[in-house]
């Protein structure tokens, strides 16, 4: 553990990622207390530039405060990113572990399913899913989880498959350990590092996907997210750059921070890659 922290923090990039991400989490948590009136309240003239009185980041096409919108948008991004990843992890780890450990027809089936999801254009499928389920926060989360769990299952299955044949796991079997004990005490601790790395990256890509859906008008109509802020101000981009630039930068910073963290975790958790 100490080794892990030392390696993780010895890289400036993971530290930067952690600081940015922590800041965004704090903003998201504090938003309802700082901006009690909510993101949809009109506070002034439309398209006021940043620095106008009381408007640090200007106002949008409807005259709403961009700062408030950005703060509330962080809530949606993080909520969707984290919950959809957790759902995908739940399904993917369970199926991947069972398939990788026991093999057989279940493994064959799972491999076919994950291959299927790799080959079909999952964003188009996601559009269909969300459109058919009616756009809402929950349909976005369900949709993203449904198209991303095979990715987790694949990683978990691969780890379990290779660890299963390692000699220390075979030794555990000869020592009379049951399957559950072997999975929990022998395989899982060794399989977790890549899973952790993949999940940190998945949160980032889920945030990107959510913003893309909202941009296309497939987000929850009752919530303001970074993607819908960009989509809503497309027509104003020519005259008021801040309406599109700022939410985009917010998305980029969040995803970048998560990828930095993932990279740092990868280095710290994977001794083979340390060079």
């Amino acid at each position: 553990m100490r080794d892990f922290l030392r390696v993780f923090f010895s890289r400036p990039i993971s530290l930067i990622g952690l600081v940015i991400f922590a800041a965004i989490v704090v903003i998201a948590l504090l938003a309802p207390f700082l901006f009690v009136r909510g993101p949809f309240t009109i506070v002034g003239m439309p398209l006021l530039p940043p620095g106008a009185p009381g408007l640090l980041a200007g106002s949008d096409v409807l005259g709403r405060d961009m700062v408030v919108g950005l703060a509330y948008g962080a809530r949606i991004s993080l909520l969707v990113g984290i919950t959809s990843t957790l759902c995908a992890l739940g399904i993917g780890m369970l199926l991947g572990a069972v398939a990788g450990y026991y093999g057989g027809w279940l493994d064959d089936l799972l491999m076919r399913v994950t291959e299927f999801f790799q080959i079909i254009p999952s964003f188009v499928l996601l559009m269909v899913l969300v459109a058919f389920l009616q756009p809402s926060l929950s349909s976005t989360v369900i949709g993203i989880a449904l198209v991303t769990w095979p990715q987790v299952a694949r990683v978990v299955r691969g780890e379990f498959l290779s660890l299963r044949s390692r000699e220390f796991v075979q030794a555990a079997r000869t020592l009379g350990m049951g399957d559950a004990r072997i999975i929990v005490t022998q395989i899982l601790p060794n399989a977790l590092p890549p899973i952790i790395v993949v999940s940190s990256m998945m949160v980032g890509s889920a945030i990107l996907t959510e913003s893309a859906l909202s941009f296309l008008g497939l987000g929850d109509p009752n919530l303001l997210s970074w993607g819908s802020m960009i989509g809503g101000s497309r027509s104003a981009m020519w005259v008021a750059w801040w309406t599109t630039v700022l939410p985009g930068v917010a998305i980029m910073l969040t995803v970048l921070a998560l990828n930095f963290i993932g990279d740092g975790l990868n280095d710290a958790l994977n001794p083979r890659r340390r060079r």
């Binding site: 980032g204 990107l208 913003s211 960009i230 599109t244 630039v245 985009g248 998305i251 980029m252």
Partner: peptide, 22 residues
């Protein structure tokens, strides 16, 4: 490459349009 991983594609397109066209 990490930067391009983190940028939403549609937004990148809008920025490119802003710079190179507008």
């Amino acid at each position: 490459s990490m930067l391009f991983y983190a940028v939403p594609q549609f937004w990148l397109g809008m920025m490119a349009m802003l710079v190179f066209s507008v």
